[in-house]
Amino acid sequence: MKKVSFAEFGGPDVLQLMDAEEPHAGPGQVRIAVRAAGVNPVDWRVREGQVLGAHPIELPSGVGLDASGVVDEIGEGVEGVEVGDRVFGEGSSTYAEFAVLSAWARMPEGLTFEEAAGYPSVVETALRIIREVGVRSGQTLLVSGASGGVGSAVLQIARDRGITVIGTAGAANQDYLRSLGALATTYGEGWPERVRQLGHVDAALDLAGSGVIRELVELTGDPRKVISIADLGAPELGVRFSGVAGSVPEALAEAVGLISRGKLRIPVEKSYTLAEAAAAHVDSRAGHTRGRRVLVV
């Protein structure tokens, strides 16, 4: 089978599309014929060797956590799924023609494989950081870097829970944020004052890692009311960095419910082939994403 792999840490050029042995489902796992794989910032952070504490790996290594596809092998002890089922979920080395998933759910009706591949990690992350920051119905949440995959999920989940969201993004994504129910403003010089004009902030999320932690703490008045998933220096300012996943099966179940009720939809901004994985990483690292980037197999 074809698989994207890297033998050393470094830039996008270390990614190679190569022939590899097919993986097999172990106990509690399923294998899928991959139809699409989600591209997440953690993928290029791992490739660069940034997050080895949370994601220890051995080289050479495959790439990717999220995927959608068709179940073709079922591991020991697995129930409730059959060969031929269309599923999406989280596993390892998903930039490949076949991948093993450790958490999965059946794809909701009306979702394409490309769309489905974009949900697992971002929905788990969105649910986790909303919980960790402690924001409740009737309060206001500020989301810095709100137009990407996690931001798109946070905005819609928060709206479903009765939470007002203020989102910052580039000028080109203002209407997109508003379409997801957020009060929108641009980042850049003077952005904290623009946020204040939109309302009081009870809690804040840093999704872009663009050096705004001090301002988020000032806006909330409490570093415990700020969570970052992108700024590794956040703890130096008393802000929690959230990088350890919670229950992915629970997150997938909640995602299915939200999608089925029409409360969650994350668009695919751009699709790539496996051979274009390096380009996908370059684009992901550059930011300014509206929704998700995926590799199509």
Rank of each mutant, 00 (worst) to 15 (best):
A99D: 05
W191G: 02
A234W: 01
F98T: 08
L65S: 13
M1C: 12
R86P: 05
A171L: 03
A255P: 11
H200Q: 15
S247E: 07
G145Y: 00
V133F: 09
G38V: 02
E132K: 14
P56Y: 05
P12Y: 05
R47Q: 01
Q29V: 06
Q156L: 00
V63S: 14
G209F: 02
F6L: 08
R290S: 00
S144D: 13
A203C: 06
L142E: 09
V34W: 04
H24N: 12
E215N: 07
V70G: 15
V201K: 11
A208C: 04
R290C: 00
V70E: 15
F6G: 08
L252T: 04
A182Q: 05
Y272R: 07
G145N: 03
L180M: 08
E193Q: 13
V122F: 05
G149H: 06
G134R: 14
V133C: 11
R131K: 14
S242T: 05
R86M: 00
Y187K: 04
M107W: 05
G110N: 12
R261V: 00
L258N: 08
I74T: 03
P223K: 08
A99I: 01
Q16P: 04
T185R: 04
S5N: 15
M1G: 12
A103G: 11
P267T: 03
P41F: 02
G151E: 00
A169Y: 01
P267F: 02
G181I: 01
A277K: 06
A245K: 13
V78F: 01
L65V: 04
L17C: 06
L141N: 03
D72L: 03
E269I: 01
R292P: 03
H55C: 10
I166P: 09
T220M: 06
L15H: 04
E218N: 10
A286D: 10
G26Y: 02
A171G: 06
G38L: 08
A172H: 04
G138F: 01
F6K: 10
E269C: 05
V30E: 13
P223F: 08
T273Y: 06
V154F: 02
V201Y: 06
V201Q: 09
S284I: 01
G148K: 03
L155I: 01
T164D: 10
E82R: 13
V30I: 13
E109R: 13
P41N: 06
R261M: 09
E82A: 13
D222S: 08
R35C: 00
A184P: 07
E114F: 04
S144Q: 13
V46T: 15
M107S: 12
A146P: 06
A25Y: 01
Q16G: 08
T185C: 11
A255R: 07
R265L: 09
V30M: 10
A169T: 00
I266T: 13
V212K: 10
G110W: 07
V87L: 07
W44F: 13
D283L: 10
S61T: 12
G190W: 03
G149C: 04
G246M: 09
Q139K: 10
T186Q: 14
P235I: 04
A278G: 15
L295M: 10
T164H: 08
V248R: 11
E132S: 12
A279D: 12
Y119A: 03
L141I: 00
V83S: 11
I130K: 09
V87P: 12
V30D: 14
V150P: 02
A116E: 10
F113T: 09
F88Y: 14
P41S: 03
R293M: 11
F88K: 14
P249W: 02
E22R: 14
R35V: 00
